[in-house]
Design a protein around this nucleic acid. Structure first.
Lengths: 299, 299
DNA sequence: TTAATACATTGATGATTTTCGATGTAACCG
DNA sequence: CGGTTACATCGAAAATCATCAATGTATTAA
């Protein structure tokens, strides 16, 4: 029974990706797997096949002859598997039902990430799925997906709730901004010293609290907000400085109502994830959305 | 990641076997799986593919049109998988190491089962494996395989030790015998009544204790043995009657030293198994031996 | 020699799969 | 109607798999 069974397609997929990526580093990103997982899988495949597939180590990554043969054979097998699927006419299962999406505010409209593009393609792919879209703050949405009231959420996330699966999709660059009526607004970057910034009243978003403070080397917050729009308001007020995603801050800069403060020094990126309940991750309706978001993020 | 992965070859194998067998009953034997497992697997495949594969129930087993298509496509896919294997030149992994076999005494020499044939083919297939062969009684061997001191054992078995995998391979017919000096030896079958047999001193093999007694409708044993050869001795002594596998009893009958007592009435079959630790069952060295034994038993 | 790179190994932990026994159910047989 | 056949379903146990964090190891670059 067993013998006939698993050539273990999964291991072959990993191997092929690894070969395409020319090493672990890129394959990790492509597969969203840790280095140790890749290593384990590759060794497992070599064990099953009984011979080394590639040389690897400090001096580069190269397929062995056997690796080449396996690579080619695997590619071909994948084609056959696709052929199998289309022969039985199952390449597109009809998706139905509803999908409850949560998106963190400020992420929804990021043109760089462009979730709307993913949504658009998803709706084309799955025209019969009813979409329920909710904006919210990370903690709220993370809770919602954990307790099953949302199917999938997108945004920065704790990445720690057990039972949830997080897939990193995008790194959002942030810079430090002040409003038009802020004392520092008219001061050129090279005339600002760090002390001036570190003493200025500082607004943080709750979910990036420590990140924000740490990045500004700032002793403590003077204001805290949960929503991105609120943070914008704080900064526009001219009484606070604070971090904002560049795509939002940049908008206001263009309108002449904000400026970035020493963007070379005060900047960082936070990672956005798609999160679902692990148990839901394979539901076709959910899976397809995640796939589209990933594709969107990949460019 | 998942999407690309499992068409689930295993499920397809089950389906194809099921279709070939034309129903659950035969497929159960072919696959050595329970009815519920088959049912579960078949439903799972139908769920994954999104459509029923066959009609089944009291009124027969028939593939649907979709089932036919899937069957053909699957067969073809299997051919491609074999092609994959041969393309990478892995149809025969070299087997090495040792294999510790245990065989229940009396089974080893059964010409009907012919384990020696399996052993012979195994040695040809895996010439580099060192064979360690031990005869013993069922309980001993079952313990040995459970605690890892044997890799595989063949014989009648409790089939109840957790962590062991039992595969039925053969049903051994038994009959009731008495020795040449036993009072019943000269009495023709139609002159023997059941009472006479039920009162005669009766020797049982420990591991078939209840089976033996039940089959003879006998109140209690008058002698007990563990080894088949000992049972032969008891019967030859002329003081006891007892069950023996037909292939052994028959030998002695041919030599004129035993006779079968009412073989129509007093006969039964016990099932022989190949048992391994579940964890070992997939080790190629073990797996190949099990395969040969099964093939031998199948004819 | 030291540090950094690129993997390998290990141990732990959930998640998933596989499997079975027990029990339920519908169709047919008498 | 009661029994039998041929499955379906459920619940639970065992085994396996996937995965990661932490740590180990060899090689090369500085």
């Amino acid at each position: 029974m067993r013998r006939l069974d698993n050539i273990d397609l999964r291991l072959l997929r990993v191997f092929v990706t690894l070969a395409d990526a020319g090493g672990f580093a890129d394959a990790q990103i492509l597969l969203n797997l840790s280095q140790s997982t890749l290593s384990t899988h590759l060794s497992a495949l070599e064990r099953k096949l009984g011979a080394p597939l590639c040389e690897r180590g400090r001096r580069g990554f190269r397929l062995t002859e056997f690796g080449e043969a396996t690579y080619d054979a695997a590619k071909r097998l994948f084609v056959e598997i696709d052929a199998f699927q289309s022969r039985i006419g199952r390449d597109r299962v009809k998706l139905m039902g509803q999908l409850r999406i949560g998106i963190v505010d400020g992420v929804a409209t990021s043109p760089e990430l462009g979730i709307h593009g993913a949504l658009s393609r998803y709706c084309e792919y799955a025209p019969d799925v009813f979409i329920d879209l909710l904006l919210g703050i990370p903690a709220e949405l993370e809770t919602a997906v954990a307790d099953g009231t949302r199917d999938v959420v997108v945004g920065p996330m704790s990445q720690k709730v057990p039972g949830l699966t997080y897939i990193p999709i995008y790194r959002e660059p942030h810079a430090l901004y002040c409003g038009g009526s802020h004392p520092l607004f008219g001061v050129p970057d090279d005339a600002i010293d760090r002390a001036a910034i570190e003493e200025a009243p500082f607004a943080v978003r709750g979910y990036l609290h420590f990140d924000d403070l740490y990045r500004a080397n700032h002793p403590r917050p003077c204001g805290t907000v949960k929503h991105m729009e609120a943070q914008v308001m704080m900064v526009l007020s001219g009484r606070f400085i604070g971090f904002l995603p560049c795509h939002i801050g940049g908008d206001w800069v263009r309108r002449g109502l904000m400026r970035a403060l020493m963007p070379k020094t005060y900047s960082f990126s936070s990672t956005h994830f798609v999160a679902t309940r692990t148990a839901d991750a394979r539901r076709p309706v959910v899976q397809a959305f995640v796939r589209e978001v990933k594709r969107q993020a990949a460019g």
